[in-house]
Design a protein around this nucleic acid. Structure first.
Lengths: 201, 201
DNA sequence: CTCACTACTGTACGTACGTACAGTCGGCTC
DNA sequence: GAGCCGACTGTACGTACGTACAGTAGTGAG
């Protein structure tokens, strides 16, 4: 049965998303992934050879999210349009926040955001290979939409936006800082926060 | 010589800051810390007993940074003052960015920011014990300065600000996204970005 | 002089990790 | 029906990790 084959491989990928998101690359173990996927340890090695191979495969399988962000960004053809900035922000945050809606996808969102704020991720070349090209395109679009900013502004503003988006996946900490029931409205708050920051700074 | 004793303990703490900031809690090893400190492995165990003990000791030794942020925040006594928001933002970012000026301190800054964006940090109770109380005070001040915001706004805005501050320590990525020489002006960019975001969202 | 105490060292133990590898099984081709 | 190939399994190997522990040197008190 070929379907079982591919399904087991995907089982492992899905389980690996959860484990890596929870524990980080170094904190997670191959055995943990295997157990979470309900397969033997050697099957994980069979499909992905090494721990890094497994890790990279996750991001390759999810590359459509960044493709989506870029596609939405490229639809903003007129930098002078009054809604150009809003659409850029939407292209940046919505494909990611959409992941938060599905319990099966939210762990990948957390994994991405963890990787984006991990200095040792440089060793793994995932950010530089899969995210930086997209980042450069967003920065270039920012420069077109907001030409009257000092040099260096746009790249930093993009990174600050990445940071804000990063924290948006930590619903748990909101409960510790505010009371409960404060976790709602995240998407709107983030969109307004970023649009205001970019338009007025 | 008692000075040698304390100095060796502090050597270990300083080396541990660098190693943990670079590799993360799980990626770092006790032997690596010992070697970086120029001491034997058993001395690290002698002073801090466990890896977690060493980790927590770093944050306790640096708690003055958060004390500083809180002290500056409490100086903002009039929430209606026109510069109240600017001073809150300054209290939030400046003590951290000051660390970036001294090569001996910058690694702790990176370590803090890594811990703040690590979901598995919940196990270590550093964020919830040392950072969340400060966070709640910042959120309360935000509520006083900006009373006309929807419920839940202030806590999320605080977290988004944490995220932006987090990314500010990744100078390396700026070089990949923008050209070189773009890394300057970080402090001013961040302050303006956050002030604009809070005032206009 | 002795005792106690603190700082520090060398070595070793048990464990858990990533990875390798020989082998099994079912379906497909010719 | 022989041979092959991809999917999958069980087991084992070498290593590197966190931690424990016995021991040494120096110092200050009585």
């Amino acid at each position: 049965m070929t379907t079982t084959a591919t399904s087991k491989r995907e089982q492992v990928l899905a389980a690996a998303e959860v484990v890596f998101a929870r524990k980080g690359f170094d904190g997670a173990t191959m055995r943990e992934v295997a157990e979470a996927a309900g397969v033997g340890l050697s099957l994980v090695v069979y499909h992905f050879t090494t721990k890094e191979g497994l890790y990279q495969s996750i991001f390759e399988a999810r590359q459509y999210v960044n493709d989506d962000r870029l596609a939405r960004l490229r639809e903003v053809t007129d930098p002078q349009a009054p809604d150009a900035l809003d659409r850029l922000v939407s292209a940046f945050v919505d494909p990611v926040l959409d992941l938060h809606d599905d319990p099966a996808d939210v762990w990948f969102a957390r994994l991405v955001l963890r990787e984006a704020s991990d200095p040792s991720s440089q060793d793994r070349a995932i950010i530089s290979g899969l995210f930086d090209p997209m980042a450069r395109e967003f920065v270039a679009a920012l420069e077109r939409i907001l030409p009257d900013r000092p040099p260096g502004y746009h790249a930093w503003a993009y990174l600050f936006a990445v940071g804000a988006l990063t924290q948006s996946s930590f619903d748990a900490r909101i409960d510790n800082i505010a009371g409960p029931d404060a976790a709602g409205g995240k998407r709107e708050h983030l969109r307004r926060f970023l649009t205001a920051a970019l338009r007025h700074s």
